[in-house]
Every structure is written in C-alpha cells, then in structure tokens.
Amino acid sequence: MQRVNMIMAESPGLITICLLGYLLSAECTVFLDHENANKILNRPKRYNSGKLEEFVQGNLERECMEEKCSFEEAREVFENTERTTEFWKQYVDGDQCESNPCLNGGSCKDDINSYECWCPFGFEGKNCELDVTCNIKNGRCEQFCKNSADNKVVCSCTEGYRLAENQKSCEPAVPFPCGRVSVSQTSKLTRAETVFPDVDYVNSTEAETILDNITQSTQSFNDFTRVVGGEDAKPGQFPWQVVLNGKVDAFCGGSIVNEKWIVTAAHCVETGVKITVVAGEHNIEETEHTEQKRNVIRIIPHHNYNAAINKYNHDIALLELDEPLVLNSYVTPICIADKEYTNIFLKFGSGYVSGWGRVFHKGRSALVLQYLRVPLVDRATCLRSTKFTIYNNMFCAGFHEGGRDSCQGDSGGPHVTEVEGTSFLTGIISWGEECAMKGKYGIYTKVSRYVNWIKEKTKLT
C-alpha cells in the first residue's frame, strides 16, 4: 500500500490518463441519441435557420407576430419608411378606419389613436360632414345658397324668414311668412316636400332668348283662358290664391305678392273693366268669414305684352289694390325667389296649380277651390304637342294621358313649387288646347323671366 501511494504521488498524470480511459469505455446513459432527441424537440425550422439574422431580410411573422416588435424591426421587413409607417399605425392600436367614419364618399386613412378623412370636392370637416359648395344638395341650405369668396357655403332665406341657429334652416321672422300653410287642420295635408338634388348652379339658368321682337298675326285659340281631375282644397291650404270678379264672377285667378299687390295673367284683364279681388276665398257660393274683398285701382301688364300681336306672350300683369290686405292664416303671400332659384325650383319637376275653373272641358265651374299636382314636361315634348308657338318664356306641365289639367277660369292662378315646406311661385296658368285632352298640356308663363320686374313694381313704400 505504501508503494502504491508513492507511485500516485510521483505520477499524477498517469492516474488522470487511467481515469479518462475508464470513462470513455463506459456506456453513456444520461444523453439520448440524435434521433430520439429530435422526437422530443420537434420544432419547425425557421426561415433563416442556421444563418445569422443580421444578414437576412426581415420576416413579418418572425419579427412582429411571434413577439412584439419595434418600429426598427418592422422597418427591416418593409425596407421602406412609408410602408412601415402605414403598417405601424394599425399594428400599434388597430384600424381606426374600420367603422368607416368618413361621410359623403370620403376616404379614410388610419393613424395612431386617430384617423384622417380625405374629402371629395365640396366637403370638409373631420368626417367630411361639412358642405362647402352650393353645387351639392344646395349646400344643405333649406332655401338659398351662395358661395363666399373663400368658396364656403353661405345660406340665406327669402323675405319674412331668418336663418336658424344651425345656419342652414329657415324659420319665420314674421307672423305670416310667405308660402307657408298655417291653418292647423290643413298642415297635415301639406304636399310632399321637395329635397334639393345635386345641381350645376353655374349652368342652372337656361341660355334662352326671349323672342321679344317676333311679330306674329293673332292666333285663334280655343278655350285658351284655361282644375280638371283635381281635388277639393281645404280652407287655408292655398292662402296665396285669390279669385278675380268682373263682368262675371271667378273669371280668373291670381296670387298675393304682398298686402297691396296681386300677380295674374295679362290676358285676364281689360282696361276700363272694374275688377274686384277676393282673398281668403274657399267656396265661392258661401260666406265663410275668411274672405277679404278689395278693388283694383291700377293694372300693370308687362311692358312687352301686346294682345294685338299675341294674347299669351309675356302673359303676366300686376294688380294694385285700393287697401292693403290683412295677412292671416287664410290670406298669405306666395314666396318669389330670384331668377336663378325660381328656375331651379321649376326644374324640380312638379308643381301645384289651383283655381275655381271648370271641372271638365266646357263644363261647370268649381264651387270649392280645386288643386292638382302636375309634372313638368320637357321642352321637346311640349313643342311636338301643339302647332302653336311655345315661346321661351312659357313652359308645359300636365299629363300625356289627359284627364287632369287646369281649365277655363283658372287662368292667372299660381303654379307653385314647394321647397322644404315653403311654396314659391314658378308659373302662372296661361293657356292650353281644350282641357285635359290626351297628348295636350297646360301652358304656363315662366315666372323666372319676370321676377325682377315683379319685385321692382310691387315694392311697398
């Protein structure tokens, strides 16, 4: 034993070699072989497995989906700052455009905790909710729209109204504003409101030439003092309507412009014939205590009207009353817009006519005020429907199939267009061939041609 100890002390290297040989010859039971080890760690190889990531292109799944990435790591994937920024906006807080917040056709661009709407022409605001041009839906104005110097929408209202708090709607500024039905039992019968379409306001006024200088022999019209197929109006439903009495009662109609003036057809009036105007009328054979009678003290036909040349060209006249009318729910003026808007309103496509005229061709006159909704007829169809001249200051309205029309005794009465609950004068009943005849239409004086003249002559002093 002493000898062994001496050998170990003198030859430590020998001992180490012996131990190493023993270990190498022993069977290893701690580690699995290569094949079995792979069965336990069965993990798919990654895209760049075996390579240094710093030297390969980034992978979106590896960089940002398996674990949260930084902007720089995302930049490695896209290799483009702009594309990385677009991805980053949604990656950080989701897609803010998912709810489609942009209105009126706006395009949404996502941002971090926010979004941006790219608005089409005519709109602005956070969600493109603000109209900035009158060309689109009248700028959301209830009545009139004008573009300011910086191309912003400025709404306005006709006389007797003021802008509401929203700067879009119009509200009454006087007790009985024009064009409004205020009798409670008839307010439910107000005709369907007309909503502004998209309009090209630059070209809204037709490029028409008034044929002022045409000389033409007097034409022989049949029954051209021209509501057939209409309905009984309720008291106060058309408070701007008046009836004219002269040699015979209810020979023509008219509309209240203001307390002192009536507008009617020029062919209705004769110099030297006494005319009485009755406002607030409903049943011409009954006294309903809503009527107001006034005498006409002055007749002003349009300066281009000449019955000797043509009885229905420039067929418009103004009547001055001896005493002002007292405005109330049964006696209310009709609204008159400017030339541009009167023309736009007419193009809405349908209007209402009213009167006490004959209820059928050569038949009896109506006792109760009649009204009828009539569609506008395109000019080409209008011209083809008659052998008589249709001037540019006239328009056609009615039904091709016949059966409904204005008729004798309705002449001078109103053709009105309702705009968001307020009625505007767009025409004056003038003439036609018979009444409600198939293929024939009622012919009306186009008020847009005469609004400046009306307003100039009827100013209240």
Rank of each mutant, 00 (worst) to 15 (best):
N42S: 13
D249E: 10
G230D: 02
I214L: 04
C141V: 00
L103E: 12
L211V: 10
K109N: 07
G50D: 14
L23Y: 05
H303W: 07
G236C: 03
T386Y: 09
L372V: 12
H302Y: 12
G349R: 10
T215N: 09
G439L: 03
T218S: 12
L14W: 13
T386K: 08
E171S: 06
T342F: 01
E35C: 05
C119H: 02
G432A: 14
A37G: 15
L367F: 15
Q90C: 13
I336N: 00
T458C: 11
N147K: 13
L319K: 00
L23K: 01
N306W: 03
F71C: 15
F388T: 14
G21V: 14
F31T: 15
C396V: 02
G355Y: 15
P301D: 03
G402F: 12
M394H: 15
A265M: 02
K311A: 12
K68T: 15
E159N: 05
E10C: 08
Q370Y: 04
P235Q: 06
Q237Y: 12
L383V: 08
H34K: 06
L244V: 06
I284G: 11
K362W: 08
F251W: 06
C157S: 00
A250C: 08
G409E: 13
I334Y: 01
Q408S: 14
S354C: 10
Y450E: 00
E285P: 09
G105Y: 09
K247Q: 11
G253M: 14
G246E: 04
S184P: 08
D378S: 05
K188H: 04
A307C: 05
V228N: 04
G254Y: 00
E281F: 04
A317R: 00
S204A: 04
G398F: 04
E434A: 14
D212H: 09
I275P: 05
L32E: 11
T218I: 11
R162F: 08
W453L: 01
K260E: 02
P172D: 04
E53K: 09
N452W: 04
I429D: 06
V447C: 03
G280P: 02
T194S: 09
I309S: 09
T84C: 07
K247H: 06
E61F: 07
G125R: 06
N42L: 05
V269M: 06
H314Q: 02
F78W: 10
E53A: 09
S49L: 11
V77M: 13
D212A: 07
V447G: 02
V154P: 04
E124P: 11
S217I: 11
F345L: 08
V195M: 12
R364F: 10
A9S: 08
A207Q: 12
K45L: 10
F345I: 14
P414K: 01
Q167D: 10
W240I: 00
H302N: 05
T158R: 00
E165N: 07
F31H: 10
K152S: 11
A380R: 04
C157E: 00
C435R: 04
G351K: 02
R3A: 10
F144Y: 04
N127R: 06
I7P: 12
Y330A: 10
A173H: 05
K440C: 13
T264F: 01
N304E: 14
C69M: 08
V416W: 12
I136H: 13
G230Q: 03
G357P: 14
F224R: 05
P235C: 03
T190A: 09
E129V: 06
S217E: 08
S255H: 01
K347R: 10
G125C: 02
E420R: 15
G229T: 04
E129W: 03
E72T: 15
G229R: 09
E208N: 12
T287K: 03
S156I: 04
A337M: 02
L321R: 00
S430Q: 10
N304S: 12
V353E: 02
V174C: 04
D200V: 09
G179V: 01
V243W: 06
V181I: 08
S217Q: 13
D198L: 07
V277P: 01
T218G: 07
V447P: 03
H289V: 11
D378M: 05
V353S: 14
A279H: 00
F71D: 15
S70D: 05
T417A: 08
A37N: 15
C435G: 08
L327A: 03
N166S: 04
G427C: 00
V257L: 05
I40H: 14
K387I: 07
F395M: 02
L318M: 03
P197W: 04
A380K: 12
Q96I: 14
G21Q: 03
C382F: 03
R62Q: 12
N452H: 10
R449L: 11
K234S: 11
E456G: 10
T445I: 02
G412D: 03
N313K: 05
H267M: 02
N113R: 10
